[in-house]
Each structure stands twice: as structure tokens, then as C-alpha cells.
């Protein structure tokens, strides 16, 4: 049901039945290694190209999500997923393997929540009984497309971020037994915001206003106070973007504490890993939320969280043509009954 300007409330609260994640070698050394279902010690993952490895990541995340919920892939009506590579081929190829009716999504790094919002909407209005949604990114494949070759010795500025090698997937169902289950209750679809940052090595700074805009709209539409949530977690803003968003929220008069406001890009790696400003990529929010955070919710550490996945909608071509970076953010509220 549309509430306010841009928010859906899901009165039938779709249930997040099971979840799965996969990650690469760099993530295995990170803080959240224990929350990954599958971890690879090699970026190639036994494939002969990074793009194929990328596909494998998503397949594994979906497989482990299906396995944990004891679902057969034939039971799933739809799959909504996306990634960052040209024409989202890794995801589409994974969908070929899965043979589940498929929507390909592109929202850059916000794809995870775009997928979750749409999947919840479909379930909420009986468009399906079971839907799988996810997102993934692969460091080497993404760098290859957006930046320089992996082994190129260019110096990255401290504002740069490290693309996560990882995937996360969840199975949403219309399960009527909601006792103790984790459900999605509302989603806010963001609008594209561009405040003129054109440095592709400072995505956090570019995405911050989009994140702030979506969070403010969400709370306004639902007339909620930030304290309603145990945790408001952004997708991949990194150090700079997160600090900037925090200040924007303060300026807007929201009472939000620093502990309550986290970022997946900062959660995933250890302090001593050379990731400059933090993690990024579609797989960043997907693997942290669909792994670490849902596990914590299941354990009862958090009851209500708002996930705001942010995406920088640039292409290698657009920044070479000196275009600024338009950004977007989608928010989904996840609660445990």
C-alpha cells in the first residue's frame, strides 16, 4: 500500500525465509568471514574468467539460500537479481542455470534493496508465493570494467573504495506463520540525486545525498522517529560518504546516534585491510545484509533495521565524458516478529 510519497507498506509482511551468501578471498580475511556460507580462496573460483567466477558467486549464494530453507528451485516463481557488469550478464547467466523466471535489475550498488523491495511487493500482492532475490559483485570483473586492470600499479586516493567480491540472496515467501520470523514491512524507493560530484574515486561522497534523501523520505512518509529502528544501515557509503550522510541527517534535524547508523562497506573489512574508504559494489550490501545482519536478527541482536542500499549510476563512458555521478538509494525495513 502506498504511504506518503514514495513508500510501500507491506501489510501481509512477506517472510524472509532463508538466506545465503558467498564471498572471495579478501572477504575471508574480513571481519564478517564467519557469516559467509561459501568462501573462496581464489578470485578465479575455478573458472577461466572473472565474469564466470562472478556468475558462480551468485549461483552459490542462491543455492545456499534455497538449501537452508529446503526449497527446490522449481518451487520458486521468480528471481530478481542484478550486478554491475555490462548488461548484467553474470546474473542473467546465473538465471539461465537456475531456470527460474527472471527479472534482471540494475540499480548499481542499490540492486540488493531494489530487488528486495520489488520481491516484497510481488509477494505482498499475491503475485507469487516464493521469490528469490539477490545481488552480487566481483572485485576483478568490476575493476576491469570501471577502472584499470587488476595488476595495474595506479595509486588509489584515500577516497577510493574496494569492490566486494561477494553475493547474497534471500528467499521471500508468503508464509502465513509469521511467529518469530523475519519479515519486510515497508520499502522506500529513492529518486536519483546528483549533487555534482564527478570523481569516480569518491563514490561515497557522491552517494551520500541520495542516502540521506531516501532515509528522510522514509521516516517522513511513515511518520517515524529514527529511534524506531535498532539500526539504520547504509549499503556502501564508506568512511567519507557515511560521515557526510550523518551530517546531512543531523542538519535535517533527525535524532540519530552514531552507533545506530552503520555502513555495510565499513562492517565487512578489518581496519588493517587496504581498502581505503571501505567496501563497495552490489555484493557489499547484499552479502552483509543477507549474511551478517540477518544472522544477528535471527539471534535477536536487532529487531528492526532499515537497510538503505546506495548506488552510483555511472558508467565508464559517462565519467570519461566528464558527466557527474547520479546516485540512488532504496530503503527496506526488515523486522523480526
Amino acid at each position: 500500500m502506498l504511504t506518503g510519497k514514495q513508500t510501500w507498506q507491506f501489510s501481509n509482511s512477506p517472510v524472509i525465509e532463508s538466506w545465503g551468501t558467498s564471498g572471495g578471498p579478501f572477504e575471508a580475511e574480513g571481519k564478517l568471514a564467519a557469516d559467509f556460507d561459501v568462501l573462496h580462496d581464489d578470485l578465479w573460483m575455478g573458472q577461466d574468467s572473472y565474469e564466470k567466477a562472478h556468475r558462480v558467486l551468485l549461483e552459490e549464494a542462491i543455492h545456499s539460500a534455497l538449501q537452508k530453507g529446503e526449497f527446490q528451485k522449481e518451487e520458486i516463481q521468480f528471481m530478481l537479481a542484478g550486478d554491475l557488469i555490462n548488461q548484467i550478464t553474470p546474473t542473467s547467466f546465473a538465471a539461465r542455470t537456475m531456470a527460474i523466471p527472471y527479472f534482471g535489475l540494475f540499480g548499481a550498488c542499490s540492486t540488493s534493496m531494489e530487488g528486495l523491495a520489488l520481491a516484497s511487493f510481488i509477494i505482498n500482492y499475491q503475485g507469487a508465493k516464493k521469490v528469490v532475490t539477490g545481488a552480487s559483485s566481483h572485485n576483478a570483473a568490476t575493476e576491469k570494467q570501471f577502472r584499470y586492470p587488476t595488476e595495474y600499479g595506479g595509486q588509489k586516493p584515500p577516497t577510493a573504495q574496494w569492490t566486494v567480491t561477494g553475493a547474497g540472496a534471500v528467499v521471500l515467501t508468503d508464509n502465513q506463520d509469521k511467529q518469530g520470523k523475519i519479515v519486510t514491512t515497508s520499502a522506500t524507493i529513492g529518486k536519483v540525486v546528483d549533487l555534482g560530484i564527478s570523481d569516480p574515486f569518491n563514490m561515497g561522497g557522491a552517494m551520500a545525498p541520495a542516502a540521506a534523501d531516501t532515509i528522510i523520505s522514509h521516516l517522513q512518509d511513515l511518520h517515524r522517529h529514527p529511534s524506531y529502528y535498532d539500526l539504520i544501515v547504509t549499503g556502501d557509503l564508506g568512511r567519507i560518504g557515511q560521515a557526510t550522510t550523518y551530517e546531512l541527517l543531523q542538519q535535517a534535524g533527525l535524532e540519530i546516534t552514531r552507533e545506530q547508523f552503520q555502513d555495510c562497506g565499513l562492517l565487512i573489512y578489518n581496519e588493517d585491510q587496504p581498502v581505503q574508504s571501505g567496501g563497495s559494489g552490489a555484493g557489499c550490501s547484499a552479502s552483509v545484509v543477507y549474511g551478517h545482519l540477518l544472522n544477528h536478527m535471527k539471534k535477536g541482536v536487532y529487531r528492526k533495521i532499515l537497510v538503505v542500499a546506495t548506488g552510483a549510476l555511472l558508467s565508464p563512458l559517462s565519467f570519461q565524458q566528464k558527466e557527474t555521478i547520479p546516485c540512488i538509494a532504496h530503503a527496506v525495513a526488515i523486522e523480526r516478529n
Binding site: 569518491n202 568512511r239 560521515a243 557526510t244 551530517e247
Partner: peptide, 11 residues
């Protein structure tokens, strides 16, 4: 906005 962002940017 860019002035605000510059404050947080790590040089």
C-alpha cells in the same frame, strides 16, 4: 553540498 562533503573527504 560539495563544501559540506569536502569537510569529510580524506585528503
Amino acid at each position: 553540498y560539495q563544501q559540506l562533503e569536502q569537510k569529510h573527504e580524506i585528503k
